[in-house]
């Protein structure tokens, strides 16, 4: 999605300004900008993040979040690639009806149920007796397999976006279906889908925030653990939100750079 450029002040902007100013006035009226409030903010900040190196809980949580997201992305890309190739090959005339049906069912089921429910089923039903297994690996598997269903559709879209003439040309030159796919179609398709894969990574990063449900101290859960320690509600959560946002913004920036780099030298 391309960002919209600022196009001058409309009526919505004026309303937003009025609302913003009203909010500022209310904050000022409720003593938000007084020295006492600032001191209180600092005291709570110290309690939440500095005392006993509590920020390390967030750092550890972030490590766990990134570890799970990376692992799940790898699984997701592998599973997604396999699924999409099966589906595209079936459509392209390769006779694999059973595999195709399996892939279709997989995608339907995993996309048709919430990731949260899948995570709970993986942890409490399928891996119920796996106690010595690090729960993070279960989460990686659950998120990865879930992501695979979405990545499959991304890949399929990418492959199908390649003009049919490419395949026809490759085949008419004597390449088999497999090698046409591997050497002609997939390299071009990959170039199209890489930015979308990064977006999937970003989506996964946020999705792993439910890992706390199976007892993983990810970034979100780390914030909740600080809440339970200091009994303070807003600061830990806002801090967690800021950390997510900063990472997502950095990644988004990276994706747009990548998009530019990938489209260099493309005829158009």
């Amino acid at each position: 999605m391309k960002s919209k450029r600022y196009e001058g002040a409309g009526r919505g902007d004026v309303l937003l300004w009025i609302a913003g100013l009203a909010l500022l006035y209310l904050l000022w009226d409720s003593g938000f900008f007084t020295a006492a409030a600032w001191q209180d903010f600092n005291r709570r900040f110290y309690q939440n993040f500095i005392k006993d190196s509590r920020y390390m809980m967030l750092v550890d949580g972030l490590k766990s979040t990134i570890f799970m997201t990376s692992g799940a992305t790898v699984i997701g890309v592998i599973v997604g690639l396999i699924l999409s190739v099966i589906r595209v090959a079936h459509k392209g005339g390769v006779h694999i009806p059973v595999l195709n049906k399996l892939a279709e069912t997989y995608i339907t089921v995993l996309r048709g149920t919430p990731a949260m429910v899948q995570l709970l089923i993986w942890n409490f039903t399928i891996f119920a007796s796996a106690r010595d297994l690090n729960t993070q690996y279960i989460a990686i598997l659950a998120f990865g397999l879930n992501s695979g269903a979405y990545v499959a559709e991304i890949f399929r879209g990418g492959i199908e976006s390649i003009d049919a003439g490419q395949m026809e040309a490759a085949r008419s030159l004597g390449l088999t279906y497999g090698s046409s796919m591997r050497h002609v179609i997939l390299p071009q398709a990959l170039r199209n889908v890489v930015p979308m894969l990064f977006n999937e990574f970003i989506a996964l990063l946020k999705e792993t925030s439910i890992a706390g449900y199976i007892g993983i101290d990810d970034l979100t859960r780390a914030g909740q653990n600080i809440q339970a320690l200091t009994l303070e509600h807003s600061q830990p959560l806002v801090m967690v939100a800021i950390i997510y946002l900063v990472i997502v913004l950095l990644l988004t920036k990276l994706v747009s750079k990548l998009e530019q780099w990938l489209s260099r030298g493309r005829r158009g």
Partner: peptide, 17 residues
């Protein structure tokens, strides 16, 4: 979209008052 947000913000503020 912006108008909608502004409207919601004003609504929330007046509810608070």
């Amino acid at each position: 979209m912006k108008k909608f947000f502004a409207f919601m913000l004003i609504l929330a503020l007046s509810a608070g008052i």
